[in-house]
Design a protein around this nucleic acid. Structure first.
Length: 492
RNA sequence: GCGGAAGUAGCUCAAUUGGUAGAGCGAUAGCCUUCCAAGCUAUAGGUUGCGGGUUCGACCCUCGUCUUCCGCUCCA
């Protein structure tokens, strides 16, 4: 049976997915049970790469910026958090399907449309009553009565014209679970759909204990969970994913300046890593979320096209203000700096927030897909060969150095082991003495190891080794004592 | 969610109108000792995604289901 022709990009994406599986980067979750849709596990090399990307981000935020500190908030949060953030209202949509047309509707939209038609027919009072009834039923999550309302009002599908409805299902973006042993509504809590709220609710704790002055930032990495209707494209959109977020608290009125600052700073972070600038672009949001006064995506050219990799949002004082309202705890900051306009301190205010939020898994995919190459090489004798190589930046490569004795006798493994012992405390090393040297090089290429050193018989005489570079496949002899500093210089 | 395509060993693929699943690569162990996957020997690895149905007999036909990829839809 012939397969449909794949475009080079599709083909490349398939190859990347296969490679990720075959070399221990990414596995489908619980694969022996057929996997779980849109959930993936990171394998030995994948978890190293992911950790290195996270560390690179964390370092750039909390170490390179004196005014940014980190936290590690819990995944579980008080349920009111999500009422304050708007997630409960915005993402609890009662949905219903028409069995004949197979079209899906939001129940509230159907009823509102009915109310509109009643108004148009001059029955405004009836329309208002309908809306009131709907709000009451929605508020109490009484879906059976809500469905009865659809029947009573003779609401039909606009496509099929029938009222052959399925049961109403509550679709919520947030996963819920029970806290404690008794399953009561009051104990329902959510798995956080974003890490940002853990930062906002800790705003004053952090500001006071770390003695931070505006402008300052709070950084956090961690898992978040969203029950996406459609979750696809490998690890691009997963139901469980990891975010790297930094909320930067600024004086009101200065947010656009910081928005521009972080827009450039974040792009710089990517290019500093060695990612190609031409695969990045900004995409300004036209339709803004309820909390934002400016927003953009940093998009990356994945094998399936330009897609959002990171978001920069100017969130105003929406979040802190809402938490102040719901918690009845003041979330203000006293600014002692002198306002030149008045000659007095700026005083109390709720800071504005500029957020940078990047998906760690997406960055992983960006790095992996950018690194992957099926390279054709011409050998010295003129014949051609092919290798699969991951051009992962040395700084974040899963393994930095492979140490390979040319043969496994004549005392070479002993020398190699000494080098291994002196390096493995500094960075991730890999030792191997099996198979031909060329084969070992290719194995390292496949997992993106930037450096290989080979210990041969000459090493015993003059303490030099061959260091071989992944990308160019060139090699040179250096003193064995230089190896560690060469690698350290490349990953600093 | 709708539509399309596909699931056979870690990977890439075979298996004659339906007749008890093979190969290459890879892996592991050993030999050889050679600076870019190619030598030799041996070994492991699959209830053909899963579950029904038809049949004397199913990788193959059929139904369901799960998973993945593609297009649409969705993605504050």
């Amino acid at each position: 049976m012939s397969k449909p022709a794949l475009t080079p990009q599709e083909n490349n994406f398939q190859a990347i997915i296969s490679h990720a599986k075959e070399y221990g980067f990414v596995f489908p979750s619980s694969e022996i049970y057929d996997g779980l849709s849109a959930v993936y596990d990171y394998g030995p090399y994948g978890s190293e790469l992911k950790k290195n990307i996270r560390d690179y981000w964390w370092h750039s935020m909390t170490q390179m910026h004196e005014n940014i500190v980190g936290i590690d908030a819990a995944i579980f949060m008080h349920p009111t958090t999500w009422k304050a953030s708007g997630h409960v209202d915005s993402f609890s949509d009662p949905l219903i399907d028409n069995k004949d047309s197979q079209k899906r509707y939001r129940v509230d939209h159907l009823i509102e449309a009915k109310a509109d038609s009643l108004r148009a027919a001059g029955a405004a009072a009836e329309a208002d009553a309908l809306i009131a009834k709907m709000d009451e039923l929605l508020g109490s999550d009484n879906f059976e009565a809500l469905q009865q309302l659809l029947v009573d009002q003779k609401i039909t599908c606009t496509v099929s014209g029938t009222s052959n409805w399925t049961a109403i299902r509550q679709f919520n973006l947030m996963f819920d679970t029970q806290l404690g042993s008794v399953a009561e509504d009051a104990n329902t809590i959510y798995l956080r759909p974003e890490t940002a709220q853990g930062i906002f609710v800790n705003f004053l704790n952090v500001q006071k204990t770390a003695r931070m002055k505006v402008p300052f930032g709070i950084a956090q990495t961690g898992k978040a969970f969203r029950n996406e209707i459609v979750a696809r494209q490998f690890i691009f959109r997963m139901r469980e994913f990891e975010q790297m977020e930094m909320q930067f608290f600024v004086r009101p009125g200065t947010q656009m300046k910081w928005y521009e600052y972080w827009k450039e700073a974040r792009l710089q972070w990517h290019t500093d890593l060695g990612m190609p600038a031409h695969k990045y672009r900004f995409h300004d949001h036209v339709k803004l979320a309820h909390y934002a006064d400016a927003a953009l995506d940093i998009e990356f050219e994945f094998p399936f096209g330009f897609k959002e990799l990171e978001g920069i949002h100017s969130r105003t004082d929406f979040d802190l203000t809402r938490h102040q309202e719901f918690s009845k705890k003041k979330q203000q900051y006293f600014d002692n700096d002198i306002d030149e306009a008045t000659g007095k301190p700026y005083g109390n205010y709720i800071p504005y927030v500029v957020e940078t939020s990047i998906g760690l898994d997406r960055m992983f995919l960006a790095v992996l897909s950018n690194a992957y190459e099926e390279e054709k090489i011409t050998k010295e004798d003129g014949s051609t060969d092919e290798r699969v190589v991951l051009h992962i930046p040395a700084k974040i490569a899963p393994v930095k150095l492979a140490i390979l004795p040319l043969v496994k006798k004549d005392g070479l493994p002993e020398i190699a082991r000494e080098l291994m012992d002196s390096c493995k405390g500094q960075f991730k090393c890999f030792y191997e003495e099996k198979d031909a040297i060329g084969k070992r090089y290719r194995r390292q290429d496949a997992i993106g190891t930037p450096f290989c050193v080979t210990i041969d018989h000459q090493t015993k005489e003059d303490q030099t080794v061959t260091i071989r570079y992944r990308d160019a496949m060139t090699q040179e002899r250096v003193h064995i004592g230089k190896v560690k500093e060469i690698v350290l210089a490349a990953i600093a």
